[in-house]
Design a protein around this nucleic acid. Structure first.
Length: 259
DNA sequence: ATGGTAGACCTTCTA
């Protein structure tokens, strides 16, 4: 089973590009982030024509996540527990059915910039809520994949120039510590476990020539439960997608599980 | 050097 995560930065602005990628790669499961539309405006029929079952947790203009699967999605849950007042659509979870079911979550973690505003504590609190929920999910002892745009640069080797990001929410010590706490519950960073090389970036800013200069960061991650990590065979970052027409600022990351 | 681009959408917010 191949499972992908991709922050598409508006699914409708990039529909042909996104559909073309799905036609050529044909992942079994995909987590999309920043679809930037409400559920009714998600191109559900276009994905169904490609053979996907669709679950959407959308929002007007901002955020929004979706799950696509070749097999039916069961036990769909929208939103992250721990704060009933949180209106932002950043979390969608379901069980991908099949002979070996896999629980999958599409995650769009808050950016958190600027760090001297309420956005940064919101990010840290959201990471704590995710950690609390992940603890509950891990207790199920199932194959589990938490995939998405975490807006976290885990290590210095995951950024072209750590000093350039020292004041950024994605690279704050508190951010990185909270991400480590999440992983230390017993989750495996699929890219690292698959011997991912340094410089495996997944995001290049649109500004300041970040792509031609390879000023990238690795912030899109697939975190696996032990029951999923046991079956990990490889992880591929689809870097070439960033060089295409009207690209998202993120590229897809695809993990293969021998399930 | 505090720049630069992209998307949604109502003039500015978010990233």
């Amino acid at each position: 089973m191949r499972i992908a995560t991709w922050n598409v930065n508006s699914v409708n602005a990039r529909l042909e590009t996104v559909l073309g990628w799905f036609e050529s790669i044909a992942p079994d499961v995909a987590c999309l982030q920043e679809i930037k539309c409400v559920d009714e405006k998600f191109p559900t029929e276009a994905f169904e024509r490609l053979g996907y079952n669709v679950a959407v947790h959308g929002q007007k203009s901002y955020n929004g996540v979706a799950l696509l699967s070749k097999t039916p999605l069961e036990d769909v849950r929208k939103g992250l527990s721990g704060d009933d007042t949180d209106e932002q659509a950043r979390y969608l979870e379901a069980v991908v059915s099949g002979p070996r079911p896999v629980r999958v979550a599409a995650i769009y973690l808050p950016n958190g910039n600027p760090i001297d505003t309420e956005k940064f504590p919101y990010k840290l609190k959201w990471l704590e809520r995710l950690t609390s929920h992940a603890r509950d999910l891990l207790a199920l002892e199932e194959p589990l994949v938490l995939a998405g745009d975490y807006n976290v640069i885990p290590e210095p080797k995951d950024v072209y120039d750590p000093a350039a990001w020292s004041g950024d929410a994605l690279y704050q010590p508190q951010t990185r510590a909270a991400f480590r706490t999440l992983k230390w519950l017993g989750l495996t960073d699929a890219y690292m476990a698959a011997d991912g090389a340094p410089g495996g970036y997944t995001f290049w800013d649109y500004q300041a020539g970040a792509w031609p200069r390879n000023h990238g960061i690795r912030i899109d991650h697939l975190l696996l439960s032990p029951q999923a990590a046991d079956h990990l065979s490889n992880v591929v970052i689809h870097r070439d997608v960033r060089a295409g027409d009207k690209p998202s600022d993120h590229v897809p990351v695809v993990a293969e599980l021998r399930l």
